[in-house]
Design a protein around this nucleic acid. Structure first.
Lengths: 335, 335
DNA sequence: TTAACTTACGAAATCGATTAAGTAACAACA
DNA sequence: TGTTGTTACTTAATCGATTTCGTAAGTTAA
């Protein structure tokens, strides 16, 4: 690797001069500067980030903490989308992304220790167990942190607006004329809670009667269970005319179960998913769903994290809400 | 941040002694060593990776080059699975993962420059344009490189065995009694080529007549086109009894088109996908597909890359083939 | 002409860790 | 007793870059 020393030798100047010339300081002669810059380019010089980090205490490295138990990690459409957009936004600002280990590594470092070891300037937290003591340690540290879809009182949070998403979805379904609406909700979590609360609030506002048997549970992305539950709903004496699912995968499970019965969507029964994953728009019929704006979620998270790093004083600790968008699709029909 | 200097001061020894004590050198007294280790723990010491990297020239950092044009990046099930498993395997060996920028960043570095800047000890290439001059530059550099699903003559490649996968799939379909088999293949690529070649080879071996109209094209993961093509195939005077798709998403598109016709899978027509993504096993009927071993692909890539780094002499430049696995599912019936 | 500034550069310290080389103190051995 | 070895440290150089301070040479002003 060619270093400043090498350039200095070639140009017959000191290392200090090279550094100044390459970093655009003012106390360098025009000719000297140009010569150094030219030589640096010719020699293929690139700064050594370790050396620079050591001296300046800036690594331009951001951590991503993202647990992937049971393949629910990078292969999880929603979070993969968020992380991807976070990455792109961070890269545009000259930052690189490093994953924090979720598994125990050789050195048995905690998340915080790992962050310090790598000199991460900030960390984004997504899709993890926020009650994990190690996560708590990180959140209570002095490292800038932004969380996604979870709110700590001392940290910036970027939240997908599940309440308004559910509201919009339910409104749409209602306006299509549906009054017998079943809701298969996800397992217990902050997201599920937000959506359910919203569901019942809107239902009440609309004087919609929702019998207990219309409210069912199925884990996220578990199309099999969703399919089973769907069949049970269809067998009710008074079956719903529309079923809402926890996510699009589940809706696919439901769709299969319905088609298997020989029923047609949306003629015989309507369904809606949530998330707006790619495949949802390619199904037949096109799935009605709330497309979560993963793009915006990731980008905002990066923007805020970098702002925390570069201007901590003027960066507000706030909760930022990202709206989902109704994709009307074709799976909810008029009644 | 607490440094060795701080520990040295507290323990009344030199920095060198601290370093040796913490790194398990032999020329340190038992008591001194224990005292230093205890103090280090108490003070919450963690090494500074930048300083260590600067001195030792080892960063324990691996690069991942992974272009994500058009959302086909981390949200691409197959590659996300591979990268995820690569990450886990690398982390187990004490390495961290850094993404190489695919977009141009502030400093306008090439992939190689970026790798050098960050001191990446090796890079894994996946899902990119391998003919890109910047990729070529990286491949021809002296940085250890492992490629996934692409073969350079001077680099280790980890290849999913598309030929044997297609063979196994076609054999299965054939053994179920199918003789009228349509094949919707992906767009032109090395992967498509490998599968097609294999398809025709096996077909020939089996004396299977494949009319031209049975061979169609649809882009990867384009369920809409796959659905359209499926309808066209169904309308043929002599329609196939089984359709093979480029991937599982496409198969879902086909599945929808078929169900829409009121046909039943696999009673009226059989279908098979490729890849073995999560949702495939949750469809009704369960999709027959070749599950690509993303787990093994990523893990082997990490293993080989680390081996190139740690014992370059004894590491063979080779092509490693990872077999897919037939998931029988329920979407191909007996005839 | 001389004091006061500018300009353009260099010397040296520094960041935190590693490591070769050196050195006391003590023990072992002939 | 003198030589050799061992043990347990310390000193100091080093990795590559940044930055403070210093200074020689030239310029301007009085």
């Amino acid at each position: 690797m060619v270093s400043m020393k090498d350039i200095a030798a070639v140009c017959n100047v000191s290392v200090a001069t090279v550094s100044k010339a390459l970093n655009g300081h003012s106390d360098i002669g025009k000719e000297t500067k140009e010569n150094i810059q030219k030589t640096a380019k010719e020699m293929g010089y690139f700064p050594n980030s370790s050396a620079r980090a050591l001296r300046t205490n800036r690594t331009y490295n951001l951590g991503v903490l993202f647990a992937d138990e049971a393949n629910s990690g990078l292969t999880h459409d929603y979070f993969a989308g968020v992380i991807n957009s976070f990455k792109v936004a961070a890269e545009e600002e000259g930052y690189d992304i490093t994953f924090l280990n979720n598994r125990k590594n050789k050195f048995n470092m905690s998340y915080l220790e790992h962050s310090k070891y790598r000199g991460l300037e900030g960390v984004v937290l997504a899709c993890i167990d926020f009650t994990d003591p190690e996560v708590q340690e990180l959140v209570n540290s002095n490292i800038p942190v932004v969380t996604i879809d979870y709110l700590f009182n001392n940290r910036i949070a970027i939240m997908s607006n599940n309440a308004s998403g559910m509201q919009e979805l339910l409104n749409f379904v209602y306006n299509q004329g549906h009054r017998k609406i079943a809701y298969i909700h996800g397992a217990d979590s902050a997201v599920t809670k937000a959506r359910m609360t919203s569901f019942f609030k809107i239902a009440e506002e609309k004087d919609l009667f929702v019998p207990d048997e219309y409210i069912r549970e199925a884990a996220y992305r578990d199309a099999i269970t969703a399919g089973k539950v769907t069949k049970e709903l269809l067998e009710l004496k008074n079956p719903p005319t529309c079923i809402l699912y926890p996510d699009d995968y589940s809706a696919i499970g439901g769709m299969n179960a319905i088609k298997e019965r020989g029923l047609s969507i949306p003629k015989d029964i309507s369904i809606a998913g949530y998330d707006g994953i790619m495949i949802a728009s390619q199904l037949e019929p096109r799935l009605t769903t709330i497309k979560q704006d993963t793009e915006a979620l990731g980008a905002r998270a990066a923007e805020k994290l970098i702002s925390l790093i570069e201007k901590p004083k003027s960066t507000l600790i706030e909760m930022i809400t990202i709206e989902g968008k109704l994709i009307e699709g074709k799976s909810v029909g008029e009644i």
